[in-house]
């Protein structure tokens, strides 16, 4: 339980701690935070780790619209 809470806090710190005054990818960042929270609820360490990686991929997928789309 404590480990999962620490995991959640750590990843939220990474998400919230990204510097910048105006958050572009408001939606992307919110989705990432929600994804991490859901991932943190997974009991198995390896499944939780894989879900965390998938969250990062989903963030990249979302962010590409902002920084690559024309």
């Amino acid at each position: 339980m404590v480990k999962r809470m620490l995991f959640t806090l750590a990843i939220l710190a990474v998400v919230i701690g990204v510097p910048g005054t105006t958050r572009a990818s408001d939606t992307c960042a919110t989705d990432l935070a929600n994804c991490y929270v859901a991932a943190a609820k997974i009991d198995s360490f390896w499944y939780r780790w894989a879900a965390g990686l998938d969250c990062e991929l989903q963030f990249t997928n979302c962010a590409r619209i902002m920084i690559l789309g024309t």
Partner: peptide
Amino acid sequence: TLATGAAAALNLVS
């Protein structure tokens, strides 16, 4: 200094 997803986004190529 960036999270993995953000770093990956910055390495996307147009």
